[in-house]
Design a protein around this nucleic acid. Structure first.
Length: 594
RNA sequence: GGGGUGGUAGUUAAGCUGGUUAUAACGCCGGCCUGUCACGCCGGAGGCCGCGGGUUCGAGUCCCGUCCACCCCGCCA
């Protein structure tokens, strides 16, 4: 006993044994995946990182004492076995990659026992996510998570190889940095040495990567952690990983081309999918008109139909009033949607209402006739639009949203399009839809304050032909910004930055940020721009989202080893937690009751 | 901040309109079994029905509050 590890090293991955290994002596180490005890003969499935293999214990090969130990094995005990690989004495198991062979044991060691498991280590989860997160270290034993983690590691490796091949320099930028009140809420870290002051964890290395361009490195990249203290979703974590890059002397096409190459390398290497390059590009305005959203799922059609002009003369009051007041009427023809029950259509109405739409106007086409609430308002022009341009046929359903606020109408219709794409199974799950969305507006109006705010960030370069609009009609200003969208998910975004101190001042002016305030918040960047800043721009990929698309899962929690809940807590470590009053006192921090 | 869904043995679920002792499967414990592979068979243990109030003769079930998880809106430059 005790010769395992010191003398007999692990010789094979359990999941890697094949018929070619028959006759070899093997030392396997791993976890007991299943026990099948037949009294005289005991089988276990031994699992390690590579998969499972059947191990046999019987009195003919194994001593009496070891047989006793074998009989006591339970799920998730950690064992080492030494024995001979052989063609199975019984029937092969076609369900297993190792199904033709088994290991007949001559030595056995029990390294460790396990308490009964909170849930089974199996492909299919039947445990609630709450339980899985509490025992994340056990959940990570499950093959789907193991595969996701290994794929994630491979994706990072491919990214590093790609950027190295393109002449990029990898940097580490600070985790303890300066709070920037623009944008998302910061996670704050108190400074003990400087009482009353705080670091912030970075929302992104944005300013640092721009400074590295001023420093002359020309091509920077980093795979880095970013932090945002905002409310969470299935595709948002308080800390997340970004593939961040920045380049000098480039225009948008240069950055998108480099990004295209990285995406192509990952999809080829990890999914064996050839991405046709270049990835198509559409402008923000086109995306909003055709899809209603700036992150369109281009795996299916069903593009939006704008009825605003027709609606002006419509007998339908809602349409004509909205169209007359500068609003938008838009919608789509859902092929086969006439089969929806009244209840289903009502649910669609509720769906668009969550996006602020007042309701849903709809009509079905059956037996050459229109039915439904909108039917009696289908005049000649609308009929032509539906049957002609939109190609509506018997069995189809046309749905429209009208709103005085164009973005509400478009967003509601766009989200409905995505919802119906899934409901009507228009999306082939094995297909990927790649698209760039470019020329985003520089500003949008904040609903609450009525002030202009930067849509991307205030360092985004306006299109050169729009510079004059900065002072005259800022909402019309478009930027040299671009987002990459895969399967309707924004997986990356970036822009060419402002490298001209004067242009930067114009932007701050439009945002209502005075020189004094700008200096206080971004002084070091503005100063840097004054010392020979090259034209530059870059991009950041949401690495977790990208990996979740490559893995084929809906939740980024499935590709993060130790994720947090939607209340930004870790159920395993029970972070965040209270701290001692001494610790707070040392930092000069007192708590107030809320 | 707002809306929705869920929380019942270790785990996943069932428990209809309130009514005897709260079911089942897997897991766990004991026994049998030399070819199974989610082994099988026999027997057994295991429950503050998330938590706190209320209504009622009686609450897992109805009402109010609260906590936790998930999904969505707002938010996330």
């Amino acid at each position: 006993m005790g010769r395992f590890i010191t003398e007999w090293k692990k010789s094979h991955g359990a999941g890697e044994l094949r018929i070619e290994n028959a006759g070899q002596t093997a030392v396997l180490m791993g976890w007991v995946d299943a026990v099948r005890n037949h009294g005289g003969t005991i089988f276990i499935d031994l699992r390690d990182r590579f998969g499972v293999a059947q191990v046999v214990f019987d009195g003919a090969s194994l001593g009496e004492a070891d047989m006793e130990v074998a009989g006591g094995l339970r799920q998730e005990y950690v064992v080492a076995v030494r024995g001979t690989v052989r063609k199975r004495a019984g029937k092969p198991n076609p369900k297993l990659a190792t199904g033709e062979v088994e290991v007949v044991t001559t030595e056995l060691e029990l390294f460790n026992k396990s308490l009964p498991m909170p849930f089974q280590v199996a492909d299919e989860v039947d445990a609630r996510e709450e339980t899985r997160l509490k025992y994340r270290f056990l959940d990570l034993r499950r093959p789907p998570l193991r595969k996701a983690m290994i794929l994630r590691s491979e994706a990072a490796r491919l990214a590093r190889e790609y950027f190295a091949s393109q002449g990029f320099v990898e940097f580490d930028t600070p985790i303890l940095t300066k709070s920037t009140p623009e944008g998302a809420r910061d996670y704050l870290v108190p400074s003990r040495v400087n009482p009353g002051t705080f670091f912030a964890l970075p929302q992104s290395p944005q300013l640092f990567k721009q400074l590295l361009q001023v420093s002359g490195y020309e091509r920077y990249y980093q795979i880095c952690r970013c932090f945002r203290d905002e409310d969470l979703r299935s595709d948002r974590q308080p800390e997340f990983t970004q593939i961040d890059l920045e380049m000098s002397f480039v225009d948008p096409d240069d950055v998108m081309t480099v990004a295209d190459g990285m995406i192509a390398s990952m999809f080829a290497g990890l999914r064996n999918v050839e991405v046709p390059l270049p990835i198509p590009r559409i402008t923000y305005d086109q995306a909003m008109a055709r899809f209603g959203v700036d992150n369109p799922d281009v795996r299916f059609g069903m593009e939006l139909i704008d009825l605003t002009d027709l609606a002006k003369t419509s007998g339908f009051q809602v349409f004509s009033s909205v169209a007359g007041e500068g609003g938008v009427v838009t919608g789509m023809v859902a092929s086969g949607g006439a089969a929806f029950s009244r209840k289903e259509v009502d649910a669609l109405t509720e769906f668009v209402k969550t996006y602020g739409a007042g309701g849903l106007a709809w009509t079905k086409r059956a037996d050459g006739k229109f039915t439904g609430p909108l039917a009696k308002f289908v005049d000649e022009a609308l009929e032509k639009a539906l049957l002609g341009d939109a190609g509506m046929k018997d069995g189809d359903l046309a749905l429209f949203v009208a709103d005085r606020d164009a973005s509400v109408a478009r967003t509601a219709a766009g989200r409905l399009r995505g919802h119906l794409g899934n409901k009507l199974s228009l999306v082939n799950p094995d297909k990927f839809g790649f698209i760039w969305v470019t020329d985003f507006p520089m500003f949008e109006r904040d609903e609450e304050t009525g002030k202009l705010v930067a849509m991307h960030h205030p360092f985004t370069s306006p299109n050169s032909e729009d510079l004059d609009l900065l002072s005259t009609d800022p909402l019309k200003v478009k930027t040299r910004a671009y987002d990459i969208v895969i399967n309707g998910q924004e997986v990356g975004g970036g822009s060419i930055r402002i490298h001209d101190r004067k242009v930067q001042s114009l932007v701050f002016e439009a945002l209502g940020i005075g020189e004094e305030e700008a200096g206080r918040k971004f002084g070091f960047l503005l100063e840097a721009l004054s010392y020979g800043a090259p034209p530059h721009g870059g991009l950041a990929f949401g690495f977790d989202r990208l990996v979740s698309i490559l893995v084929g899962t809906d939740s980024i929690r499935d590709v993060i080893a130790f994720p947090k809940t939607t209340r930004a807590a870790c159920l395993m470590t029970e972070a965040p937690s209270q701290v001692d009053t001494e610790q707070l006192a040392e930092l000069g921090i007192g708590l107030i009751e809320k």
